[in-house]
Design a protein around this nucleic acid. Structure first.
Lengths: 284, 284
DNA sequence: AGACGTTACGAAGGGCGTAAACATG
DNA sequence: CATGTTTACGCCCTTCGTAACGTCT
């Protein structure tokens, strides 16, 4: 199970084509065919159906292993490269949508070498830090008080808490529940929700936290723009669980405290394992 | 970063010898030397000091990546092999010390093909299931109510809850605190404790849960035998956090409820991703 | 027939073992 | 000097590309 073979395999599976994978990887179609054949021979299972190219059950299973493995290999290489020589150029900071203000505040002193600030999805942030696409990540999420954010550990990554603030259910100011002083999440399972996984608390997480099904997605919001989501909630497209701050600042919105389960909005710094370049003002 | 090179590197680092690693892996000493040289050339860093053979800083870092990667590769191979052909022979069940009764109850019907029951450490259980050394794992641990046990995800592993029971601080019946109706963990930070990481709640976890340092290990208990640990507590060698059941059954012990933080003793089943061989009576 | 994957084959490269050189305590 | 690692070198096996050959639509 040479990583080259795994990489070829994942590429073929993604592109659903041997020739396209060859083109992307700089191999001939023939070499790709040989790679896949070698993997299939090694594992004794057919991994791909051809024409159309589709992963078999075993192939799907292997993909689930291969991607993390390749990611970790890349992370290891990036980590050791970083250890070898400090990267020149501006500090590249990535932040998830609701962590942007924290990232801005954090990088306030970084005038020396310049700054690149980039908004990324929650799913990508840790990966980008691990593979040295970013020097620092600022990640947000919704968890029980003082619980750490769940991060996929791609290696000896260091995460540190930065801030926590209360969580509210965001509703239009005119909503019948807007006057309530507190809400229980489970009682809102049948409401209309906005699925905004990169900004608000993702609906599957709400289902898990409430312990009930429901939380139907009336609207899907794929951007990373907080103002846009707030406007969508105000316009009545659905509810969202958000940190109290931005909701209270919006004129058309009411933010009602979430009493059960207890959740906080938490911001954490994600730094590469080595963490050579010290970031001051951490943990403020 | 060929896995063969990584495997050679980790073996050399573990055995602190090129020649011993070669012997273990079936290579000549020369090949081992070439492997390490190739890795060092590839990554542009010296990984090992020679004479004596010791990992450098970069080497230590690489080890932290290499071991999970190699484990995942092995897990992937084992998983696909299992998918290919159902394993003959007895059902191999592994359980951590405090999960043994649950494992026994669970495997009660498995008379068809026979049963191998094996007590393993918490650290090893998931790895052994993933690499197909075990067909089923029964894992215990101490967590907040209804939280899942923390498991290192080596692939698409399936874990399911099996049972939860209350947690107590085990003390000798004659201990001054034995008459209390409830105890706060933080108040016990300066007590004498027994470090029994494979049976009781590990002391580092207690420090984290209590949010304070302390919990000094007066005694270290490395076995997986519950009765032995209970005897050690009864004899005054130190305290331990344990599930209520076995503590209450012991004549010389008092089990005082732990009121803050709220913890439960939880038992979970760990099954290989595929889970072909259905285990009945799950989730009882 | 055309697009796409497979197979055959030869050339280049890489990996391993043997053996000699080298370093270190 | 003994033990243990590195280097030199040759053989073999692997891998890739070219090109001819299936095969599915």
């Amino acid at each position: 199970m040479d990583p080259h073979l795994l990489r070829t395999f994942t590429t073929v599976a993604r592109l659903r084509s041997f020739s396209a994978a060859g083109a992307e990887l700089g191999y001939t179609q023939s070499a790709v065919s040989q790679h896949v054949a070698a993997l299939e021979a090694d594992l004794g299972v057919r991994l791909l159906e051809r024409r159309p190219v589709t992963p078999t059950v075993a192939g799907e299973r292997l993909l689930a292993y291969a991607e993390p493995i390749l990611l970790r290999l890349a992370a290891a290489r990036a980590d050791l490269a970083r250890l070898r020589a400090p990267r020149p150029g501006p500090l590249r900071v990535g932040a998830t949508a609701l962590a942007v203000p924290a990232a801005v505040a954090l990088a306030a002193d970084e005038h020396a070498t310049g700054l690149v600030l980039r908004v990324v999805s929650r799913a990508d942030l840790v990966r980008r830090v691990a593979t040295d696409e970013l020097d620092l990540g600022v990640l947000d999420g919704f968890v029980a008080p003082s619980d750490p954010l769940p991060v996929v550990e791609l290696g000896p990554t260091a995460t540190t808490r930065h801030a926590e603030q209360p969580v509210v259910v965001a509703l239009p100011r005119t909503h019948p529940l807007a006057a309530r002083s507190g809400l229980r999440l489970a009682d809102l399972a049948v409401a209309r929700w906005i699925a905004a996984p990169d900004v608000a608390a993702p609906l599957p997480q709400l289902r898990a936290a409430a312990g009930v099904d429901g939380f139907p997605a009336a609207t899907r919001y794929d951007g990373t723009d907080v103002a846009g989501l707030l406007a969508a909630v105000a316009a009545g497209h659905g509810l969202a669980v958000l940190p109290a701050g931005p909701v209270h600042d919006h004129p058309g919105l009411a933010g009602v405290a979430l009493v059960t389960p207890r959740l906080v909005h938490r911001v954490e710094l994600v730094r590469p394992a080595g963490g050579d370049r010290p970031i001051e003002r951490i943990g403020a």
